[in-house]
Nucleic acid binder design. Structure first.
Lengths: 194, 194, 194, 194
DNA sequence: AATGAATGAGGATTCATTCAT
DNA sequence: GATGAATGAATCCTCATTCAT
């Protein structure tokens, strides 16, 4: 019986190394060799476990999304009230985790990848639908039929502000993205109630 | 007898070819050879005129931004009234020009490039500042001190919706991004006037 | 409790898998991993039993020759008369067994291998000598001193027609190789008897 | 204006180097790098001119056949009489040129390649048809309807004896292949004339 | 006996870049 | 001004082989 159960460990190490490497480079021009080196193994083993570079990228993307999803789930756990839940969802997107350079790089590059990779596109859609669904769940009770469009606006604002804040070099002059989205949320909720 | 004035023609051809090539690939993994071939010249000549691949990319980014800026300028020309001008700025960002696949690809990739290239980052900042300035110019008279934050929100929403619509595969189910931003603008303006 | 006598079973499985794999590829660019997979075991075990890729090939070659030799032996068993025996030897070389694609591939590749591998060359010589010996055994009584050269011609014709028929894509327009060699045999025998 | 007309020179050098390299190895396990090195250039240039390894092999095969064809053509030039022409065709196949190790290696490997490569197979067919056509041209006037089958036999014998002589290690014990085929030809011609 | 784990070496291919003309 | 020629330096991927268990 050989050493067993290495696969999940190796795969996890490679996924993490991939995200770190993309973060360090800022783009997808990272070599399998460097990823493997960072993960403490030979590039041959990386190929053995993932089959190829593309699949390594996909796994990294999947992981990034899973981490985000878990964060949202945790934030919602034990949060009651529609307004509070909406705020939790919004805040989760702007957590410090998500502004670590490697996470920002991952997201930006996944956007690019989504143009040419069907798999990447599908994963991104999952994220978008989940966000929409989360927002709708609590917007509908509050603003009824206006929820659909409002959800799109809020989701778009989240993505746009994340993009802008993620690319901002100096944290100083940065607006607080969360606050900004909450203000927009406030506006969305108030309009109907005028 | 050397042809006079070839340089600007060649450079323009290369810039256009670069954007098209990036659009076709969806990412920056395009070769100088292919760009040059598309522009009808040898890759050696492309190097001669631009010095290297990075500078070709920068020129393409500069051009993309210049086209966008020109579009906004045109839209503002002859438009009077703060509200009308704001609407013109917003609509310009979502013109059909900007949703041509190669333009989308250019923007997404420039976001990625901005992480690692100081030049690209600076160019992106110019775009962001110009948009902010344009919005502020007409928001301040309408909502005074709330303009600063509102401008950030609207700019963020523009970028976020562009990102989302740009990545959407099917145009059918898409919300109209312009309408969405105008709705948000409406909300921003109304709040103060309640 | 180790399984006893696994070795011959494993080795046989590997030899068969090797021939099939070579047949599928048409050349010797087959991997030990694929051979082992086809034989239902790990590549490590293949190495354990054979020591290396070359020896696996040699074993496959040995087996191919052994099968051929057995076929000839069977054909000769109970066949009496010099002419009948010669015809049996010839026919055996063109049996349907020998025209299975994997057998053809094996032979062609062994010819190639024989150029660079002393072992392979020796094995091929054994085949050639055995064929010569078989032919001589029955030619000599019939045509005496002319047998030596006639044997070389017939053996050459067998190999040449096998090569050609083996490479022919469409079986339709093919001459019957056996008939052709028998005709040549007839000519060889007749000349002396004129 | 750059250095011009290098292409045919480079291609010829690569074809020759390929044949030599295959000859030295005995098989097709030769690297593009080694071929290029032998031809005095970088492997990148080899790819530039041929596009890939397969096409380099094909070109080498084409060249080998062309050389053979030229040899036959030369041998036939100025040769009159059906019998003499047949003898010339046969002798050409066994010229010392054709027994240079690299030529032998080329032929054997092309047989292998013909199994899996449609292009290689087609080239081999061209050789076979040309030989058949050459033989028929002079056999028909001599033996009429028997020519077709006789031609197949002679062609098969040529290939078979070439194969055997090509693989023989010691030139000493070798029969003279030409003599052997001529003897067979003699038999073919005599039978009808008895 | 048997295998998953692991890798070093190598190989095809690509490409930005340089240079001579 | 323009380009064919040329290459060094990657990079992905494969594979025979070894080893610990």
């Amino acid at each position: 019986m050989p050493k067993l159960g290495m696969e999940p460990i190796r795969r996890a190490a490679l996924v993490k190394a991939t995200i770190d490497e993309i973060g360090a480079a800022g783009n997808l021009d990272v070599t399998v060799s460097n990823i493997a080196k960072r993960a403490g193994m030979s590039s041959a083993l990386a190929h053995h476990y993932f089959g190829g570079k593309d699949q390594i990228f996909l796994a990294a993307m999947r992981h990034t999304l899973a981490v985000y999803a878990a964060e949202v789930r945790t934030a919602l756990q034990g949060t009651d009230g529609h307004r509070a839940r909406l705020e939790a969802v919004i805040a989760a997107g702007f957590s410090s985790t998500n502004f670590r350079p490697e996470v920002i790089a991952a997201w930006l590059n996944f956007y690019v990848l989504a143009q040419s990779s069907e798999d990447a596109h599908r994963l991104l859609q999952i994220y978008q639908r989940r966000l929409h669904s989360n927002l709708m769940h609590d917007l509908r009770p509050l603003i009824g039929s206006r929820a659909a469009l409002a959800s799109r606006r809020i989701a778009g604002l989240i993505d746009g502000l994340y993009l802008r804040q993620g690319l901002a070099r100096d944290g100083s002059a940065q607006m607080d993205a969360t606050t900004q989205v909450l203000a927009a949320l406030q506006a969305e909720l108030r309009i109907g109630g005028q």
